[in-house]
């Protein structure tokens, strides 16, 4: 074989290897999804969303689980997004670059890689026991907020760092203050990437089971946290209650985990249906992230 033919051979071989690896990955994923759909599809009915868990598989539903998931996600978002973006802006734009901030930076990157169950233990020790929040929605939301916080800080910093320094200089040269520059130039330019990071972090948090089990989320729960909006008979006809924050809860992945561990065959169907719901939610969130990233790339290019 001459040199050209040999090169050609290696080229083709590598291409083949590449195709094999990607098809392996895709096929395994596809097989899993199809399996789940076949198992779970019959249970996807309106009743499934409207029912509490039950001892009878055909009666069981995910009402408490999806409501719990929404509660937890909202609390997690409300706490982690402002703190995360604030910390990211401070570290990137205000903090002096010295050994101490360097040390903080390294530790935030490390925290992003700490196993989630460790956060669960922290949540149990601090929020549940020390702060006496018990096994409440608030304790769960705070724990997950801690879990996603490093990811949000990191993505905020990356998004800010991707903005060329010429934009900062242009703003300062016109007599803008630091905050005006951040508020008017940096944040609008970075927000697409920041949001993408936040949504990906949230969709990861939505699937987390271990920290919430550690915190003490219940696996069987036949009531919902107190609705924050209370309808009244008299003026102003509506009130807001924070009582729900202190109620016990469960979330989708925990409900699924619970069903999978049951011996009855019917619960496997329930679990598969639950997985479908969780998968679709994750898919929707990731699509929003991809859409935002795409929009951002279209709008801002330097």
């Amino acid at each position: 074989m001459n040199r050209k033919a040999l090169n050609n051979f290696w080229d083709k071989l590598f291409k083949l290897l590449g195709i094999t690896s990607i098809s392996f990955g895709l096929l395994v994923l596809l097989a899993l999804i199809i399996d789940v759909i076949i198992d779970g599809y019959p249970r996807i009915t309106l009743n499934f969303f409207k029912s509490f868990p039950s001892r009878k598989p055909e009666m069981a539903g995910i009402l408490s689980a999806w409501v719990g998931t929404i509660w937890i996600m909202v609390i997690t978002a409300l706490i982690s997004i402002p703190i995360g973006i604030g910390a990211g802006i401070y570290l990137e734009e205000y903090a002096p670059k010295n050994k101490f901030t360097n040390f903080i930076e390294i530790n935030i990157a490390n925290l992003a890689g700490v196993p989630s169950v460790i956060y669960g233990l922290l949540g149990l020790g601090f929020f549940v026991r020390y702060m006496n929040l018990d096994r409440s929605v608030l304790a769960g939301g705070l724990t997950l907020a801690l879990l996603v916080l490093p990811v949000i800080i990191l993505s905020t910093r990356e998004a800010l760092r991707a903005i060329p320094s010429s934009i900062r200089e242009a703003s300062y040269a016109l007599g803008a203050t630091k905050w005006q520059t951040i508020r008017n130039q940096l944040l609008p330019a970075a927000i697409g990437n920041i949001l993408t990071g936040i949504i990906l972090a949230m969709s990861r948090a939505m699937g987390e089971t271990a920290p919430l089990i550690t915190v003490g989320a219940l696996t069987y729960i036949a009531f919902l946290p107190q609705n924050p909006v209370i309808i009244k008979d008299s003026f102003p006809f509506m009130g807001i209650s924070f009582q729900g924050l202190f109620d016990p809860f469960t979330v989708l992945p925990i409900q699924i985990y619970n069903w999978v561990s049951r011996p009855q065959k019917g619960f496997i169907t329930d679990a598969a249906a639950g997985i479908m719901v969780l998968l679709i939610l994750t898919l929707i969130m990731n699509s929003i992230a991809i859409f935002l990233r795409y929009q951002n790339q279209k709008r801002v290019r330097w």
């Binding site: 010429s166 200089e169 242009a170 040269a173 016109l174 007599g175 130039q185 709008r299 801002v300 290019r301």
Partner: peptide, 14 residues
């Protein structure tokens, strides 16, 4: 504000 500047590379805001 009193000492304006134009840079080497055009840097309009997006």
């Amino acid at each position: 504000r009193k000492v304006g500047m134009v840079f080497q590379r055009p840097n309009p805001f997006p």
